[in-house]
Each structure stands twice: as C-alpha cells, then as structure tokens.
C-alpha cells in the first residue's frame, strides 16, 4: 500500500497539485464571499434589532438543507463547475460567521461603549475603534468553523465538475483503489487541520492583548 501511494506521488504529483489547488481555490472563494455577506449582515442584525430574527432564521434554515442536495439543486440553475459549488459552500458557511459576528458584537461590554460615547466619540468612531475590533475574536472563531466545514464539504464539489480532491476520492471509489481513497481522504484531512491551525495562528497574531 505504501508503495502504491509512493508510486502515485512519483507519477502523478502534478495531477495531485492541480486538484489540491482547485480545492483550495473553490474553498477560499466560498469563504471570502461568505464573509463578505455574513459580517455586514451581522452588523445589520446588531444595529437593527428587528432584522436579527429574520436574517439569522433564514440562513439557519438554509443550513439544514444538506450540501449535496444544494449542489444538485443548483445544477439546473447554474450548471456544472465552480460557480454552483461555490454557492452551495457559501450557504453552508454564512451561518457560523453570522452567528459569531452577532455574538461578538453583542459581547462588547456596555461600559466600554458608554464611556466611549461619553468621551465624545461619534457612532462611527465607536464602531471602528471599539466595537468591531472587540468582536474580532468571535468573528475569527466563526471564520475558522466555516473554513473547516468548507474544506471538508468541497470534497463533494467534484460531483458537479468543480474538481478538487474529491475527484481523487470518487475515482478511488469507482475503481476500488484504496490507495487513491487514502491519498484523497488524507489530503482533505490534512488541509482541514492546516486551515484550523492557520486561524489559530491568526488569532494569536491579531489578538495579542488577550494573552499579553
């Protein structure tokens, strides 16, 4: 088995790198889009209490639909390829980022906001200088959860022709090739772990005040 795996990397390293790159690309795209939707949506939820229930409810409901089902439902609308895969992954990633953004913004102590206002900070300054930076730890937690889920679920994207490491796994299943299954599964697992570590590192770098 080890020999077979070694053989695969000797002969097909380029293919593997290609799949890895495609996997990372679609994951990153989905994460960036999800963050671009979820963080502003979180700010809106906190600024306008009325919006909170409907917005979190909507994305919460969408999250319940299995990613595979979303992928397949997207087929008639967006066809095959990266676009429908990214959409499905975005829907998966928005809720954890949204929830954590809201929780982060609401966790900022009232006393901090009150003294900021009392010193003559304007609303926008309070958000930029205090509220958003202080929500960052939880926003990062949400991004981490979302990223790890995206990396795992992007495996399914191969089903609709978006490429990625899922190809290797599905080929392995089709051909009863355990070596391909192991390489594919192992690569996804490593990528997930690495993603998690990356966010832990980011947390340490950006939020030194918490551990100082």
């Amino acid at each position: 088995m080890i020999g077979q795996i070694g053989e695969y990397f000797r002969t097909s390293l380029d293919r593997w790198t290609g799949m890895l790159t495609a996997h990372v690309a679609v994951s990153l795209l989905a994460l960036v889009i999800a963050a671009a939707i979820a963080v502003p949506a979180g700010v809106l939820c906190v600024r306008h209490e009325r919006l909170k229930k409907p917005l979190t409810g909507l994305f919460g409901a969408l999250r319940v639909v299995p990613s595979l089902a979303i992928l397949l439902l997207m087929l008639p609308v967006l066809g095959t390829g990266t676009a429908p895969a990214a959409v499905a992954l975005v829907l998966l990633a928005v809720p954890p980022i949204l929830m954590n953004t809201v929780a982060g913004l609401e966790s900022v102590p009232e006393s901090v906001l009150e003294t900021a206002a009392a010193m003559g900070m304007e609303e926008g300054q309070i958000w930029r200088k205090a509220r958003l930076p202080l929500a960052l730890p939880l926003v990062l937690t949400g991004l981490k959860t979302a990223a790890v889920e995206i990396v795992a679920s992007a495996t399914l994207a191969a089903k609709i022709g978006a490429g990625g490491l899922g190809e290797l796994i599905f080929t392995g299943i089709g051909l009863f090739r355990t070596d391909l299954l192991l390489i594919g599964g192992g690569s996804v697992a490593m990528l997930s772990l690495l993603t998690g570590l990356l966010f832990d590192l980011l947390d340490k770098l950006l939020l030194r005040y918490k551990t100082a």
């Binding site: 102590p109 009232e110 006393s111 901090v112 906001l113 009150e114 003294t115 900021a116 206002a117 009392a118 010193m119 003559g120 900070m121 300054q125 200088k129 205090a130 930076p133 202080l134 939020l207 005040y209």
Partner: peptide, 29 residues
C-alpha cells in the same frame, strides 16, 4: 462631552489598547 470627564464603576477601558493608548483616547481624537 469633550468638556466633561466621566468615570464609572465598570471603568470601561478599551481592552485591546494599552494603558497609554487608553489615556490618549481623546487627545488622539
């Protein structure tokens, strides 16, 4: 508000700023 000093029991320092940055809040503004 700039002409009034305000101090409360919960203090309300910015936890992500150093002591010096906290003290300099209004001068920086």
């Amino acid at each position: 508000r700039r002409g009034i000093g305000y101090v409360i029991q919960q203090i309300g320092l910015f936890p992500h700023w150093t002591v010096a940055e906290n003290v300099a809040t209004v001068p920086k503004l």
